[in-house]
Nucleic acid binder design. Structure first.
Lengths: 197, 197, 197, 197
DNA sequence: AATGAATGAGACTTCATTCAT
DNA sequence: TATGAATGAAGTCTCATTCAT
């Protein structure tokens, strides 16, 4: 039998991950059974296991997807020609999170919370999640440095520490949105601007 | 054995919850089996089930404990006679979290993350967690109002929005501490002060 | 501590049996737990176990009670001075069964059915139930003999075989009452008279 | 393994039911464990649960089988061209019961008694058992009507009441056979004929 | 490659019985 | 004798994974 093309294989994997993520958004990693994923993907057990060695592999793929979405947002924000304030960067990130939350296949931020929890148990997921978080924080640090250069941030500030706080604002936004339900990018950024005015 | 006193009964429940929480800090809610908890508590299965109707009841108790610790920290901060800055309030909360993390029975913040994840699935835990988060946010709002009165915060600021941001900083601190490991109350508060200077 | 009097002991046992039988009428032998019985009796576990060595002992006592009620009904019917027809004997038995069914502590006929089922498993209960059934059948046989003497039954009839049939009518009455609900002593005896007319 | 055919699936279910019924004939519904059934069926736990959702589903299937055997016996007896007496109908039923009792896989009448007991607790089983009993009684009623037409039964008789009695004879036969052991279709029908002579 | 029935370890929970007080 | 908390074996059911077809 002819080997499947690499693209087709990748597409199949994505299909499975998407199915899994819909399940996880609903039920969490642990209440989601392989049968659920298999069902949601419309495939057979054997087929799914042809693309992923185990449930944990799927969890890892889903986790990477959920956390990775935000990571490269600020990648090239540092190289912008015009000044970018930290508030603007925050707004960009929160808006993107709001988009993820409204995804037609289910709220990706719910999956993100699952990934946090799972990362405390599974070293592989820990590696994925912490790498992504590190990337995002690095992005904020670059923005902070530029802002400092542009006079938008005190020259005394340690950009690394500022980046900790900026990154720190993100999970709190996602959580409040999910659990309290009354937070929007607008209200949150407004609060931030008021604080940093 | 005649009837057990209410205190003894409560102590026994606490004992079980503590045992469970040690397990959960290590393995998460779902990888923790009742056998683990029973073992850790040094009791028999039947005995444990005499105090909790199900594993889920224990999970709920653990969740309440983990999240509840921080909730009433800011309760009476509003009634302080001398001005309290938002940075001070934040420092108080973060310091407390650092204490929770160093608990001899295991890092309670790890359990908190589990509770977030679980609250997305279980309405009871959702109720517990969101109530506690709401309390903490209310505390920040009171502090913000006072700070505004004391001239420490712009009079244009909406205290509710500011409280969203203040509360929002907390999960991000706990997560970075757990996943990246390089964040301390000092560095975080320094970053916050630099931003709001 | 002074030993309890034999009467008091018997009364306590009866109390427990009555409690158990209420449970069994509701839930059957196996879904009835010792906790149920203990609760219903308003006693402590230890106390109940002071009167019965095991759950099975209680089941046996309840079974004997349920089946025994009917057994001695026909005892002295044979020695009656005036002729007794088989239909009359049947009516007597069925009426008594209807009384048992209306017992304020629960339908004893339900317990009887449980006892039949249990007697197929437990030799002790088998002994109790079959002895009682034998007694009742013996009663019918005596009545049959007398009826034969009185010309109410063909002289060709074998009283033992007739007694089999007469006894055979009884469980069918109880079952139809319980499961179909539309049988009364009156309708049943009417059918019997119509058949034997 | 590709998809199993519907027949094969049904055969597998029957296999499990037969295994279960052998266990139940020995031990009753409640002392029969799933492990017993699984063992007796020579399958794995998961396999059995692929065919039945729960132990109770198996109990229901077994109950239906045990009671159903007799139900349709009298179905077409009414449409017979030559007169059928009630005694003949009874004999047919009892003979069939004797056959069930001698089944190589265990005495089905024992299972029937279990089903009676269980029907008092479980509405589903109640529905199954009462429906089957109703069918059998309806069969007797048809026979009674024909017998009346043929002059074999008094024209005053109410066929419905007569059917109650005829059906009522059946459980009593099965029980006496099981518990006293000295009843045969011959002796029982002889007694019946003597009574109705 | 795909199928999906089968596997079986292991999870949660119950409950008859005991025994220290 | 009475109490009732504790015991722990045993029961039901799930589910990640495999493998014959």
């Amino acid at each position: 039998m002819p080997k499947i093309t690499a693209e087709r294989r990748a597409a199949r994997r994505d299909h499975i991950v998407a199915a899994g993520w819909r399940c996880v958004a609903r039920e969490g990693f642990h209440k989601t059974t392989m049968a659920d994923v298999i069902n949601e993907a419309g495939m057979s057990a054997g087929a799914v296991y042809g693309y992923f060695r185990s449930k944990n592999e799927i969890i890892k793929a889903i986790s990477g997807l959920a956390i990775g979405q935000v990571a490269d947002l600020l990648q090239d924000m540092g190289s912008a020609t015009q000044p970018v304030s930290l508030a603007d960067a925050l707004q960009t990130v929160l808006t993107h999170i709001a988009t993820m939350a409204d995804h037609e296949d289910g709220d990706l931020t719910r999956v993100g919370v699952q990934a946090w929890a799972e990362s405390l148990r599974d070293p592989d997921i820990h590696a994925i999640v912490s790498e992504r978080m590190g990337q995002l924080r690095a992005g904020f640090e670059v923005v902070a440095r530029h802002a400092q250069k542009d006079g938008l941030l005190s020259s005394d500030a340690d950009p690394a520490e500022v980046a900790q706080v900026m990154l720190g604002l993100v999970p709190g936004f996602a959580l409040q949105r999910l659990l309290l339900g009354d937070v929007t990018p607008q209200s949150y950024v407004a609060g931030f601007r008021a604080l940093t005015a």
